[in-house]
Each structure stands twice: as structure tokens, then as C-alpha cells.
């Protein structure tokens, strides 16, 4: 029983690695589906703007509220901007954006590709002489990898605005104090780290979605199962990889 589970797990890791390697190798092989990539960028990037904007805004606002309560006991409410900015840029912006994308994009990719598998559309595509990893996987991977850092930056920015509005109206802080403390606290390393992690997260979300979608079997019920698994697996992988990426960034930046 345990041995079977281990073998199944290892086979899944092998298949996932192979698919990921092919998706990356396709970047250097013709044909390149540039139009499909831009279409996906639109769906993933522009299409996710609203949820990312709302997530960022309210996370920043909550951070300001919560941190002010703790900072007040030290008489340091003025540092609210610093806490909001550092938490968002280093950690919450990248992770929350990736989790929101796992919910919206990972599930979307898995259900779309899964439906194509169960209705033979993937086989039809192969029969027409098209490699589905080139036509479907690589464009989605490229689009998510490029859009995730941009969406993270937007999430960070709207988070700062959320924090600023709470600081201004709830905490009665001066705008200039909030913004100057916020900007001064963000280092170059924070920005690099905060915008590098989304590249990896974007890769994880898209590849897990594609993998789960292409591995679908068992009709429409199978599509539902793949979709759920894609969201769960991508979310967990994002959180686990976040720890190791942070460790790596700390090692590299000293």
C-alpha cells in the first residue's frame, strides 16, 4: 500500500518534471505561439486585475489596522507605513498574489485542458500535427510567469494605498509620514526578492494547472477533480517553495 503510494508519487514527480522541461525547451523550438501567449497574458494579467487589486488593498488596510494596535503600545504608530510596506513587498504581496492566481488561473487552466482531454480535443490537436505542449502549455507558462511579478507589484502598490487610507482616516497619521517611512524601509534587496519569487510562483501555478489538466481522466467528474487538485497542489507548492526561496534570498543577500 505504502510502496504503491510512493511509486505513484515518484511517477507523478517524473511526469511533472518532464512536462516542465518540455515547456521550457519549447521556448527555443519552432513553432512559437506568440499570439496564444499574448492572449493568455490578457486572460491571466488583465483578467486577474480586479481580484489582485482588491486582495492587495484590503490586505494593506488590515495590516495597518493590526500593526497600529501593536505599535501603539511602543508609541511607534508612526512606523505603520514601514510594517505595511515591508510585510507586503517581502512576503504578503507575492504569496497572496500567487494564491489568488492558483485559485483563478490554476483552476482555469486545469479545467480548460481537462475538458479538452476528456472530449478528445487534445488528441485531435496531436492528430492535426500540433504538439499540445507547444500550443497550450508553453504559452500559459510564459504568460503566468510574466504576469505574476506585474500583478504582485500592483498588489503591493494597492496594499500600500489601503494601508495609507487606514493610517490617514483611522490612525490620523500624516500622509507624508506614512509614505516616507514606507518608502525608506523598502530596500533594493526587498524589491528584488519580492519580484523574483513571483517568477517561480507563476511557473508553479501554471505548470501545476497544465499538468493536472492534461492528466485528467474519467469524464466531467475527472475535470472537477483535476481542478480541485490543481488549486490545492499549487497553493501548497507556493507556500512550501516560499520558505525555501526566502532561505535562498537571505543566503544570497546576506
Amino acid at each position: 500500500m505504502l510502496a504503491n503510494a510512493i511509486v505513484t508519487g515518484l511517477i507523478q514527480i517524473q511526469k511533472f518534471t518532464l512536462l516542465s522541461t518540455r515547456a521550457i525547451a519549447n521556448l527555443f523550438r519552432r513553432p512559437r505561439y506568440i499570439r496564444d501567449t499574448f492572449e493568455q497574458m490578457d486572460i491571466i494579467g488583465v483578467g486577474s486585475l480586479t481580484i489582485i487589486l482588491l486582495t492587495g488593498f484590503f490586505t494593506g488596510a488590515v495590516l495597518a489596522l493590526q500593526s497600529a494596535a501593536s505599535l501603539r503600545s511602543f508609541g511607534a504608530v508612526g512606523l505603520t507605513g514601514q510594517l505595511v510596506a515591508v510585510s507586503l513587498v517581502r512576503e504578503l504581496g507575492p504569496v497572496l498574489t500567487a494564491l489568488m492566481l492558483a485559485g483563478r488561473i490554476g483552476s482555469g487552466i486545469a479545467s480548460e485542458l481537462g475538458s479538452m482531454v476528456v472530449t478528445d480535443q487534445i488528441n485531435a490537436m496531436r492528430a492535426l500535427g500540433t504538439d499540445p505542449t507547444k500550443k497550450l502549455v508553453t504559452p500559459r507558462m510564459m504568460a503566468t510567469v510574466t504576469m505574476c511579478p506585474l500583478l504582485t507589484a500592483i498588489c503591493d502598490f494597492f496594499g500600500l494605498i489601503g494601508g495609507w487610507l487606514v493610517s490617514l482616516y483611522e490612525l490620523k497619521l500624516r500622509s507624508s509620514l506614512y509614505w516616507s517611512v514606507a518608502f525608506d524601509s523598502i530596500t533594493y534587496d526587498d524589491l528584488i526578492g519580492g519580484l523574483t519569487k513571483p517568477l517561480v510562483f507563476g511557473f508553479i501555478v501554471s505548470m501545476v494547472g497544465c499538468y493536472k489538466g492534461l492528466e485528467t481522466w474519467g469524464g466531467t467528474q475527472g475535470v472537477g477533480k483535476s481542478t480541485t487538485q490543481a488549486v490545492v497542489a499549487a497553493s501548497i507548492m507556493v507556500i512550501i517553495s516560499d520558505f525555501f526561496l526566502n532561505k535562498l534570498i537571505i543566503e544570497l543577500t546576506g
Binding site: 475538458s115 479538452m116 472530449t119 478528445d120 480535443q121 488528441n123 485531435a124 490537436m125 492528430a127
Partner: peptide, 8 residues
């Protein structure tokens, strides 16, 4: 293909 398998 069975059912046609047209791209939706």
C-alpha cells in the same frame, strides 16, 4: 474523432 472533437 467520436463526437467530432472540435475545438470549443
Amino acid at each position: 474523432f467520436q463526437e467530432g472533437a472540435l475545438f470549443d
